[in-house]
């Protein structure tokens, strides 16, 4: 009886140890996965703070110059109307004979000062972040626009995160090249890594939008 008890105790210990080992392994795998995410679901306040960081990037000239409400893009840190009679065109890519890619190639042209990235074009009018007087929309308005799936090409949180992380025209904003005179174009207030991290926090918090303008 004592031997049976000892044997049972031994097997129980082995089983318990095996379960503990499995649990630890699973936690490590999940932990590695979670390492990409915040350690806990961000609060709404944390999400709103992250949104304000995102907003500061979206409204920087490197981004907002192509998110216009008008028939034209903008240029420069002063966001003046794009020179040379450049207009939006029906698909946001200019018009036949005067497309965006007539000048803007697949990467920055450092010798001539023309910025470039794959598929250079305007954002659709549904993603305008300015009004018709070129005035930047409020944080509330931009947030609501960005999270409206009827306007944002049906992107949910994961889609928005991927867009901020991988879209070539978004990436360009953080490596915008130099002007013809060799001076560097100004950068958004966050690095791309910080921008993606803020987006991740905002998405994990449920993409909250501020209540007041």
């Amino acid at each position: 009886m004592l031997r049976l008890g000892q044997a049972m105790f031994r097997w129980s210990s082995i089983i318990l140890f095996a379960c503990a080992a499995c649990s630890t392994t699973s936690s490590s795998a999940a932990g590695q996965d979670m390492a990409k995410k915040t350690t806990a679901t961000p609060t709404r306040d944390a999400g709103l703070a992250a949104w304000q960081q995102i907003y500061s990037v979206l409204t920087h000239p490197r981004c907002i110059n192509c998110h216009t409400a008008t028939n034209y893009p903008q240029q420069g840190d002063d966001r003046h109307r794009h020179l040379f009679n450049i207009i939006r065109g029906p698909g946001g890519k200019g018009v036949a004979g005067l497309n965006c890619v007539t000048c803007h190639q697949g990467s920055n042209a450092e010798s001539t000062g023309v910025p470039g990235a794959h598929n250079w074009q305007l954002a659709p009018l549904s993603m305008r972040w300015q009004d018709l007087d070129d005035k930047i929309l409020s944080s509330v308005e931009v947030c609501r626009s960005l999270t409206d799936r009827s306007k944002n090409d049906n992107l949910g949180g994961a889609g928005l995160l991927k867009h901020h992380d991988q879209e070539p025209l978004v990436l360009w904003a953080f490596q915008p090249g130099h002007h013809r005179d060799g001076t560097a174009r100004t950068l958004p207030p966050l690095t791309h890594e910080e921008f993606v991290a803020a987006t991740r926090t905002w998405v994990e918090a449920g993409t909250p939008c501020p209540q007041n303008p």
């Binding site: 036949a96 497309n99 000048c103 190639q105 990467s107 042209a109 001539t112």
Partner: peptide, 13 residues
């Protein structure tokens, strides 16, 4: 096939 302003496009592109 796309009209291109050759004065600002480096040959490398």
């Amino acid at each position: 096939g796309i009209a291109t302003r050759s004065c600002v496009v480096p040959v490398s592109l």
